[in-house]
Simulated scan of single mutants.
Amino acid sequence: MAETPDTLLVLTNLPDGDSARALAAALVEQRLAACVNILAPCTSVYRWQSELETAAEVPLLIKTTRTRYAALEAAIRAHHPYELPEIVAVPVVLGLPGYLDWVAAETVPGT
């Protein structure tokens, strides 16, 4: 396994499958993400503007690099229908070296 502080796993949720697929495609096409996993719908429970809310959402797992994070966050915000979308980045501490190299290669702009 390789140590790689540059690889990130970014989490967000979309309100439906169509918006999740559109965002995933845009991120990969723009080389902001090497891969986006669109997970099965889930139920989220949260407090928003002092009210308890429950919503069906489609989670995304986005693989990118620290150097592409700012542009990735901007793209998510630009395409996301929520006023305040969840965008959380978790550093990948260890992983299969070939996979992590692939994530880095796929997120180089203009290649």
Rank of each mutant, 00 (worst) to 15 (best):
37 N>H: 14
98 G>I: 00
34 A>G: 13
14 L>M: 15
15 P>V: 04
67 T>K: 10
21 R>I: 00
59 P>L: 05
31 R>Y: 04
13 N>A: 15
61 L>T: 06
95 G>N: 05
47 R>I: 09
56 A>R: 13
97 P>T: 12
50 S>D: 15
74 A>C: 03
25 A>K: 13
3 E>P: 01
99 Y>N: 09
107 T>W: 02
16 D>V: 00
14 L>P: 05
93 V>K: 08
94 L>M: 08
11 L>K: 06
1 M>C: 11
90 V>H: 07
97 P>S: 13
48 W>F: 13
28 V>I: 13
50 S>N: 15
50 S>Q: 14
38 I>E: 15
45 V>G: 07
92 V>N: 03
108 V>K: 12
48 W>P: 05
109 P>G: 08
106 E>D: 09
97 P>W: 01
84 L>M: 05
22 A>V: 00
61 L>D: 08
110 G>M: 08
64 T>H: 03
84 L>I: 04
104 A>T: 14
27 L>R: 03
91 P>K: 05
107 T>R: 03
69 Y>F: 15
109 P>D: 08
50 S>G: 11
66 R>M: 01
10 V>G: 04
62 I>M: 04
29 E>N: 13
27 L>E: 07
61 L>A: 14
43 T>C: 10
2 A>T: 11
92 V>P: 02
1 M>P: 10
24 A>L: 07
23 L>W: 03
89 A>Q: 04
96 L>T: 09
90 V>S: 07
97 P>D: 15
53 E>G: 02
83 E>C: 00
9 L>C: 09
80 H>G: 02
24 A>C: 09
42 C>K: 00
101 D>K: 12
88 V>E: 05
41 P>R: 08
107 T>Y: 05
27 L>A: 10
10 V>N: 02
50 S>T: 11
71 A>H: 01
103 V>F: 04
54 T>G: 09
98 G>C: 00
74 A>K: 00
65 T>C: 11
46 Y>K: 09
68 R>H: 04
33 A>E: 04
50 S>C: 01
84 L>A: 02
70 A>P: 03
43 T>S: 14
5 P>E: 15
61 L>W: 10
5 P>S: 14
97 P>R: 13
25 A>N: 09
81 P>A: 08
62 I>H: 06
21 R>K: 13
102 W>D: 10
57 E>F: 06
92 V>E: 01
108 V>D: 06
101 D>Q: 15
2 A>M: 13
22 A>E: 13
72 L>C: 05
65 T>W: 02
99 Y>L: 11
57 E>D: 11
36 V>K: 12
79 H>C: 02
86 E>Q: 13
96 L>R: 09
91 P>D: 04
18 D>Q: 12
78 A>S: 12
71 A>C: 01
45 V>F: 12
73 E>T: 02
31 R>A: 08
65 T>E: 05
50 S>P: 00
95 G>T: 03
